[in-house]
Write a protein that binds this DNA or RNA. Structure first.
Lengths: 342, 342
DNA sequence: GTGAAAGCGCTAACAG
DNA sequence: CTGTTAGCGCTTTCAC
């Protein structure tokens, strides 16, 4: 691409108003006092020229860009929907722009090393992204504020997580309360501890109720669309199929429901199914999904706040675990409730 | 926020390598030739210092930022999911960063006037956003390349639309093929011509088949969650309810399905329902939704290409109408097909 | 109060 | 091939 055409600069404004650029800068930033008359003339010139200061030049001089970067596995993923809104709205409210980069998970975790270098973003929100400690150190050493979500890097940088264990416990207790004894689990991928934590909760609750979790009741999935369907088929083929299944996330739970229905069986009549996350889809499966809501919007909001107001983050090394919320709909066996999404 | 800590600059590199900054710049941009030895020493210094050039300074000097801005009603909306991916992936492939701003539709359409000023973005993708001609003129005059999607501003800037009329025609023809005679429509909002175009197609096709579209069969909706439910209830309360309903988008169709099911009726047994868009949800409603797929990914891709390679856009004023694709699932009355989403 | 001038970090001529 | 220098547009002392 070729360079853009000309646009008014601070010099043009100064010339037109008959003042120096220093004065223009002053009325623009309004800290020092400028005489009413000078200010008026200057504002008039700005208006006439439709002048807008260059963020680039301003950024260079100030060494800050008023933009924060968001790195996320997939900005389009329904699960991150609330999170992204939380980040964007909070950033926007503080007059910050949001630079986004989708960065699918990878073992190397290398590609984004050179993205969002300092002086391009003042802060970085890393969501469900595994970065190496050296990279993190380099970023912070260069003055980039970073906040991490859905991934525990050790807590030497503000971190926001969700209480998977407690959330899952509540969900499983609810299932047990329905009277189900044979409860299976469809796992997520193992690149984060989420799936394991939810499974641990399932194990613990079952044990506390004197129930067992047979090896065969733990079916592998990967959080993505498709695997829930396969896992459920395998579960249904067991000699003694489970009475209820807990899928590590809603996407797999939705696919599991399809697998059950295609078998000609009913949910929750023949088998109950619950998920985790409470994505938008959870309201539209038939039956609607009982699940655990994650405070994703809040998390995005907190991450940005941690970047914007480091002091509130207690030495920039807070590690907060947010509570979840059990959302009871119909797939667990409870009667239908509100007619509309909720 | 306070300015960031220091980071290596091109001067540090030059000093360490014992060369001038001009030389460092040359090895960085590799256009002019540099002696192998000098190059080696310079690269070594860069490596040692973990130097990364400042995009800000570079942008100021070059007058381009290598970032494009995306303005969209809601970056989180499922319908724009493919579009956003198309924009991001195409931009990333060209080494461009993506600045995002959600801008809910409004009559004034004013808030984003000062966002993404030049020298902050080289180009702007406006999706389903109504901008005034003066603003558009100002942007292009300042050298910002803009591409518009899902909104027809008059064609003096690259515009990408979808063939609503043809897509809807195909869908309705399919419905008529099923034998339905009484077909109703749930409208979208009127801020874009989309809903009206789809309705026009419905009218035309019905007429061509000697069928009528009673006034009462056109129920108002607004594309958003909730209204499809209400509209469908109203339709069911009619003395002579329709045999099939065409909702202006999938979200409303999904809500309509819920309304029908809650009435104890079957879809498509008692009443067929179809939508438009083919969002992810369309695969999970029960029954799965027959709908019209919009080439959103392609559109995002084309928009970015139009910005990056203006010449291919034919004088930067192309206006391309993309074809849609009929996606037949079960809600229209067709038998179930593939077990997995597709 | 307001102008002049020194950068911020980098690219791009322009001399050698 | 490589060093020097003049900006890019804005903020910020430092004098007047």
């Amino acid at each position: 691409m070729s360079p853009p055409k000309s646009r008014p600069t601070i010099d043009d404004v100064a010339a037109r108003a008959g003042v120096s650029i220093g004065t223009v800068s002053r009325v623009l930033n309004g800290l020092n006092r400028v005489s009413p008359e000078t200010r008026r003339r200057t504002l008039q010139a700005i208006e006439d020229l439709q002048y807008q200061p260059s963020n680039l030049a301003r950024g260079l001089a100030l060494r800050r860009t008023k933009t924060i970067g968001l790195v996320i596995p997939s900005i389009t993923d329904s699960f991150f929907s609330g999170f992204v809104r939380g980040v964007e709205e909070t950033a926007t409210a503080a007059s910050y722009s949001m630079l986004v980069r989708s960065q699918p998970w990878s073992d190397e975790g290398a590609a984004y090393e050179q993205l969002f270098t300092p002086t391009q973003v003042d802060g970085l929100v890393l969501a469900a992204i595994n970065v190496t400690r050296p990279l993190l150190d380099q970023l912070t050493a260069r003055g980039v504020r970073v906040a991490v979500c859905q991934e525990d890097l050790g807590g030497y940088v503000p971190t926001f997580l969700v209480d998977n264990y407690e959330g899952a416990r509540e969900l499983v207790e609810h299932l047990v309360g329905h009277g189900y004894r044979r409860i299976a689990y469809i796992t997520g991928s193992d690149r984060t501890p989420d799936s394991k934590e939810r499974l641990r909760a399932l194990r613990d609750v079952l044990q506390e109720h004197g129930l067992a979790l047979p090896e065969a009741y733990v079916m592998p999935g990967d959080f993505n669309t498709g695997t829930g369907y396969l896992a459920m088929q395998a579960l249904l083929n067991l000699n003694e199929p489970p009475e209820a299944v807990f899928a590590a996330n809603d996407q797999m739970a939705a696919d599991a429901i399809r697998a059950v229905r295609e078998r000609g069986l009913q949910v929750p009549g023949d088998i109950a199914i619950v998920g985790f996350d409470d994505i938008a889809l959870a309201n539209y499966t038939a039956p609607a999904l009982t699940t655990v809501r994650q405070p994703t919007y809040r998390m995005g909001q907190l991450a940005v706040e941690a970047i914007l107001e480091p002091q509130s983050g207690r030495g920039a090394s807070a590690r907060v675990v947010l509570p979840t919320e059990l959302v009871i709909r119909e797939s667990c066996g409870c009667p239908a409730r509100s007619p509309l999404p909720g």
